[in-house]
Design a protein around this nucleic acid. Sequence first.
RNA 1: GCCCCCAUCGUCUAGUGGCCUAGGACGCCGCCCUUUCAAGGCGGUAACGCCGGUUCGAAUCCGGUUGGGGGUACCA
Length: 478
Amino acid sequence: MRFAPSPTGMFHVGGARSALFNWALALQQADGRFVLRIEDTDAARNRPEWTEGIIRALAWLGISADDPHFEGPYFQSAYAGKHRETAERLYKDGRAYYCDCTREQVQERRGNPHLGYDGFCRDRGLEPGPGRALRFRVPEGGPTVVDDRIRGRVEFEHSAIEDFVIARADGSPLFVLANVVDDVEMGVNTVVRGEEHLSNAPKQQLLWEALGRPAPVWAHLPVIVNEKRQKLSKRRDKVALESYQDEGFLAEAMVNYLMLLGWGPGEDREIMPFADMVPLFRLEDVNSSSAFFDEKKLRAFNGEYIRALDTDAFVERCRPWLTGESAPWPAANYDESALRAVAPLAQSRVAVLGEIVPNVDFLFLDEPAEDDRSWAKAMKPDTAVPMLEAALERLADPSLAWAAEPVKAEVEAAGAALGLKLGKAQAPVRVAVTGRTVGLPLFESLEVLGRERTLRRLEAALARLRAEATGAPDSAEG
RNA sequence: GCCCCCAUCGUCUAGUGGCCUAGGACGCCGCCCUUUCAAGGCGGUAACGCCGGUUCGAAUCCGGUUGGGGGUACCA
């Protein structure tokens, strides 16, 4: 097994799925190896942080460098000598030849920019030299048959494969060559990669044969597409694994979802830990049609995984959003015991961990969050003012035990006196205290918030309501 | 253009000639529960691209067609 990404951008979900499939296969055998090779030969487009990102992302998915099945990372750039050596050998064996044609010359001869190389230098016997690239001599007749574990036999007529370049004029190897040379060196026997590489397979198989090695087992995975059914692109689609991680997707959920893109454990099962999938995974069972990356379903999976956590684990995993830089409240305001008190209530309400923030911010913010739409919806002066006044009066009673049930009873009673059912009566109170019409169960929230802060917020809301009523009516909002 | 891949509900898929009046999941809709919102429960919506074959019988096999997609670099 091997996974050979190129560090030319943020690590994305397609690469993650390929890595996972490779990983599952490697784990199936005691001596299975998952070789991570960073293909960094395109110096202009590589950056060290991308490489670090790949390793970090793999670790997040559970593909850990600490595992004995993991090997690497190797860096392709370190094997340049071997690449050149192999290119030279291919030339000496007559399997490749030098060519000094420019792209313009080829096009001029063929008259069509889409037609490939015409073999002009095939028999010119050019020696190595400046301006001369090395081309592989594709055999004259017959096809190369790629035996793909997912797609079956795929035939490529040699007449349709041009004599492709394997080394640039400066001697540096191209992907097709470097990739094969490294795989040969590293003893890779199974290549599982995206469908976009299918057209490289016959060329690489020819190279393996030219080097006197049996070609590896090939498996070309269906591409992952966007809603327009185009291959996911780093430019236009949200594909970075890191962005999902930042939003609060659980690695377990991401892994589970990704494994289901093109494959399934069978028996109508979907939610399943990776470890249980490993023994069940078979390349032969992988689908060959492209799959849409459905974030809605990913979210549903994530919700399932979040709800399956126990409270401690849930709190633990929410911590980065609660105590990190992004938290909207002053760090000193954070109170873990308050959080723990409402955590079970929040757990079934968040689909991604990041959503914990708007659910609990009323506990840690000095003022409730400002949400104009909520205010406009719940704070209709004719009902909100009397309701808040009544609630305030009842809740201010020092003999009232400050707990969810008694508080609920008071608010309910205050509403009843005004002819409001609890559903209506609680709305202004909720907005006054939390800033929003939706959120955690209100009375449990008030219990945790405490009497003082609750009363203060009710007063503040009432004051604002009165100010708006007596203020400039022409500027009132609908 | 050329080469190659693909084709079941909106989406991910089950299905490998009769078990299919096509199953599951996400989504969507409705109902129940309910202090909001979720979660949960119950129910519903919705698909074999098309045309020919083969066969007693086709979502399943074959051919064609249409439609998607990938590749077509001295990128990876």
